[in-house]
Amino acid sequence: MNQRDLFLKEFRGESIGTISTESSSDEIFQNQVLRPVLKLQNDLFVASFHNYISKNKIDFYSQSIEKKLFTIENAIQKDIKFRNALKGMVIALFTVEEYVTYIKNSSSLNKRMMNLLIERLKSQVQLFENSSV
C-alpha cells in the first residue's frame, strides 16, 4: 500500500456502521469507505448545495420543509452534472484498491452513495438558510 492510500485510510477514520459475516460486499464497502468519506466531505457537500441553489436561482429559502427535502432529492437524482460532481468529491478520496472494487459494481455503489448523500443533506436542511457560504 502506498503513502497516499495509507494517508487516506488514516485521514478518513474508522468504519461507520456494523459489519457482520452476513454483510454483503456492497454493505461492507458502504460502511468501510462510503460513510467515512461522506462524513469527511460533509461541509463540502453543504457548500456545494448552497452553490447549486444559487447558480440555479432556486427559491429554496422560502419553500416549506417538505419542498426543501424534495428539492434536495430532486437535485441529486435528476441533475446529472451536479450528481457527477458529488460523485467525484467522494471517489477522489478512494484508495486505488477501493477504486478497483468500486468500478466492479459502480452502479449499485453509486445508488448507495447518492442515497446516503441525499439523507445526509436532508438531515441538515436547517443549514440551508438564506446565507452565503
Results as ranks from 00 to 15, higher is better:
Ser24Trp: 06
Ser25Phe: 05
Ser25Gly: 05
Asp26Pro: 05
Asp26Leu: 03
Ile28Val: 12
Ile28Gln: 05
Ile28Leu: 07
Phe29Leu: 01
Gln30Arg: 14
Asn31Thr: 01
Asn31Arg: 12
Asn31Leu: 04
Val33Met: 01
Leu34Glu: 02
Leu34Trp: 07
Arg35Gly: 01
Arg35Asn: 15
Pro36Ser: 07
Pro36Trp: 11
Val37Thr: 07
Lys39Val: 09
Gln41Val: 13
Gln41Thr: 13
Asp43Arg: 11
Asp43Ala: 15
Leu44Ala: 14
Leu44Trp: 15
Leu44Glu: 13
Leu44Phe: 14
Val46Phe: 02
Val46Arg: 05
Ala47Glu: 11
Ala47Trp: 05
Ala47Leu: 09
Phe49Gly: 08
His50Met: 09
Tyr52Asp: 05
Ser54Pro: 01
Ser54Asn: 08
Lys55Pro: 00
Lys57Gly: 00
Lys57Leu: 07
Lys57Trp: 01
Ile58Phe: 04
Ile58Thr: 04
Tyr61Arg: 03
Tyr61Pro: 08
Ser62Thr: 11
Ser62Gln: 11
Gln63Asn: 08
Gln63Gly: 02
Gln63Leu: 14
Ser64Cys: 02
Ser64Glu: 09
Ser64Thr: 11
Glu66Asn: 10
Lys67Ala: 13
Lys68Tyr: 06
Lys68Pro: 14
Lys68Arg: 10
Lys68Trp: 05
Lys68Cys: 10
Lys68Leu: 06
Leu69His: 08
Leu69Gly: 02
Phe70Tyr: 15
Phe70Ile: 10
Thr71Arg: 03
Thr71Glu: 14
Glu73His: 08
Ala75Asn: 07
Gln77Asn: 11
Gln77Tyr: 13
Lys78Arg: 14
Lys78Asp: 07
Lys78Met: 13
Ile80Ser: 05
Lys81Gly: 00
Phe82Asp: 00
Arg83Val: 00
Arg83His: 11
Ala85Met: 14
Leu86Glu: 03
Lys87Leu: 10
Val90Asn: 01
Val90Ala: 09
Ile91Met: 01
Ala92Gly: 13
Leu93Arg: 12
Phe94Ser: 00
Val96Tyr: 10
Val96Phe: 09
Glu97Tyr: 00
Glu97Arg: 04
Tyr99Thr: 01
Tyr99Cys: 03
Val100Cys: 00
Thr101Glu: 15
Tyr102Phe: 08
Tyr102Thr: 02
Ile103Thr: 10
Asn105Gly: 01
Asn105Tyr: 00
Asn105Thr: 02
Asn110Cys: 06
Lys111Phe: 10
Lys111His: 09
Arg112Gln: 13
Arg112Ser: 08
Asn115Phe: 02
Asn115Ala: 07
Leu116Asn: 09
Leu117Met: 11
Leu117Val: 07
Leu117Asp: 03
Ile118Glu: 01
Glu119Asn: 13
Glu119Ile: 05
Arg120Val: 04
Leu121Val: 10
Leu121Trp: 06
Leu121Gly: 12
Lys122Leu: 10
Lys122Val: 07
Ser123Asp: 12
Ser123Gly: 15
